[in-house]
Design a protein around this nucleic acid. Sequence first.
DNA 1: TTTCAATCGGACAATAAGAGTCTTATAATC
DNA 2: GATTATAAGACTCTTATTGTCCGATTGAAA
Lengths: 149, 149
Amino acid sequence: MQLTRAADYAVRVMIHLAGLPPETRASRAELAIAAECPEQFLSKVLQSLARAGLVLSHRGNTGGFELPNIHRRATMLDVVEAIEGPMRLNICLNADRACSREEWCPAHQVWVKAQTAAVQVLRGAILSELAEKAAARKPIPLAGAPHWN
Amino acid sequence: MQLTRAADYAVRVMIHLAGLPPETRASRAELAIAAECPEQFLSKVLQSLARAGLVLSHRGNTGGFELPNIHRRATMLDVVEAIEGPMRLNICLNADRACSREEWCPAHQVWVKAQTAAVQVLRGAILSELAEKAAARKPIPLAGAPHWN
DNA sequence: TTTCAATCGGACAATAAGAGTCTTATAATC
DNA sequence: GATTATAAGACTCTTATTGTCCGATTGAAA
């Protein structure tokens, strides 16, 4: 019942990207520092985000990752689900094939409510707005600060 | 980001027990049928519940498991946490050692809100009340119904 | 056109967790 | 003491998590 590191890193990265001027490209190295995570692992995360269309990747000398303007208003839910797939608090909440107890099981409805509550919060968290909050609060980073390769 | 089977089974079992007359003992076999799960695995789950005090276990010829009256009003949160430990949607929500980004990270507050929302729902789900709902809705089980050893 | 600096993508690996089984105690009743 | 319960621990099998490493591609600039 816990978010994966990959999804956590994805959220961090996306907020960082949303805080940059539009159409800025950020290198993987920069993003790894911003997200405080291993760069190689972030590679995988960024590839997932790119496949989901949440991020544009550019190769080559001036390459890097870019947040399309449309997705500045993506939500934390979008990001998490791009990495982990649809959020399901319990296996019985699988939309595809229903649980055999669903009809009468009183717990089922509770799981639905709990999941909906959590999802609603994540759906309300919009990247650009989060980036603004971060900008307002974030201390100036120290030179020679810790660094993840 | 998903409940374990163990916790799901635990909730099923606890609701079943809450639906029995006070001080009734139910055998592991009966509970396995009620929870639709393998009996041996349920053994482990019941041991955890017993260690947490949510259930009383009795050995011997007339043994079985019993829900103490006090815990008829336990919540689904209590049950889940007895099996899985404290609920944490993200690793950064660990109360013990704080996240280094907590001060400024706008995602942190969102995780807190999402987790609180889910926890509140589970905290509101009281076993005895759930058992009543189940009794009102549950169809009469067929003889020769599927059966888990 | 060569070089350089990026990302991509696949293979690999170490560890942990999840889900369950099996066997041997241990306890309580008859 | 025989029978019928649960307790507890060892064991297994599979999958997910969290990475790492490296060669292949790509694109721009010298």
